[in-house]
Amino acid sequence: MNSVTYLQHLYGLPKSFAKIKMKPSDFKVYENLKYSFSGVGEHYVYKVRKIGENTKFVANELARFANTNPKNIGFAGLKDRHAVTEQWFSIYVPKNREFSLDKFQKTYTNIQILDKNKHNKKIKKGDVSYNTFNIKIRNISNLDDVVKKINFVRAGGFPNYFGPQRFGIDNANIQNALKLNERRVSKNLKSIYLSAIRSYFFNEILSERIHRNIHRTELDGDFCLKAKDFEDNQFMLDYVQGTQDKSFFLTGSLLGDNRPEKINDIGLLENEIISKNRDLFNIIKCNRMQLSQRLLIIKPMNLSYYIDLDSICIKFDLPSGAYATSLMRELFKEI
């Protein structure tokens, strides 16, 4: 089972080969939160730039140097290790206890504190409004085709697939999920494994819809969002405008144990995919996972690029939960 590489492409199979992440500076990610900080409160917030480190490691080290429990550290999302990333962390300090991160900054030269503030709440998962990506694509074998695909994606979006990092190295998260009934794991690991299964089914169903050319067609049983559903998140509306011919936006199911039996068009399609992966779906049924929805097609905002010899530097914004790697696979086949 290969979780990503065989999935259908929206604009046909790319003709070019290329490479990303040849070095961390080729892949930059800048986090943008949904709110401004209050400037007061018991949570110190730090904007951190990290190179070659994962988010949880940084969080744990901040806790250690601040002499506090790791549970008092907050962050809005995980960022790629093999990249240059900027994101915010919060440290809960009751009664504004004095502490210093000077030793932290001297210890890790690849981790910099760029800014700091105070806030009245912990930074939590889901607080990201959007991420800005700045990526250098190297060793491109067919520049014309990559440029053509970039313009297609800018106009019509790309499949909102979960990226390969969701499934772990060699699909380890899926394989571990299949063993959940045989051994106990931490709550955090269990959540990662179960999320990988739901992501797998979402990708499979979306890929099949693209294959049948019904990814922009409302089927009987589809759950659609309308413009008014984005009243509390107008920024998100920008990412779906232009991806549908009508005033609604198609979503796909993130399957749950409460999934109703459907005899409509979308139910039959889901059942077809589930029947090929019954063992995986049984894991979902045996665990509490609420049915939810995810947009099928997502559109990058503020996309720009320039050509540098046989490379392209591309910059764009994506909402929280969307994968830049899913956009990249529309442009080229990775070497």
Rank of each mutant, 00 (worst) to 15 (best):
V4F: 15
L7D: 02
L7V: 12
K21R: 13
K23M: 13
P24E: 10
F27G: 05
K28D: 03
Y30L: 15
K34D: 03
V48G: 09
R49K: 15
N54W: 09
T55E: 12
T55C: 12
E61H: 07
L62E: 03
A66M: 00
P70T: 12
I73N: 00
G74V: 03
G77N: 14
K79G: 10
R81D: 08
V84N: 11
W88Q: 09
Y92M: 12
E98G: 00
E98I: 14
I113H: 08
T132R: 15
S141I: 02
L143D: 05
D144F: 03
D144T: 14
D144E: 14
Y161D: 10
I169S: 13
N173P: 10
N176H: 14
K179F: 02
N181G: 15
S186K: 01
S186L: 06
L194G: 09
F202C: 06
L206H: 11
N213Y: 11
L219V: 02
D220H: 08
K226F: 15
L237M: 06
G242I: 01
G242W: 02
L255V: 07
L255G: 03
N258G: 05
N258V: 12
K262F: 14
D265N: 06
E270N: 11
C286S: 15
R288C: 08
I298A: 13
P300C: 08
M301F: 00
N302T: 01
I307C: 04
D308E: 14
S311M: 04
S311G: 04
L331S: 07
L331E: 00
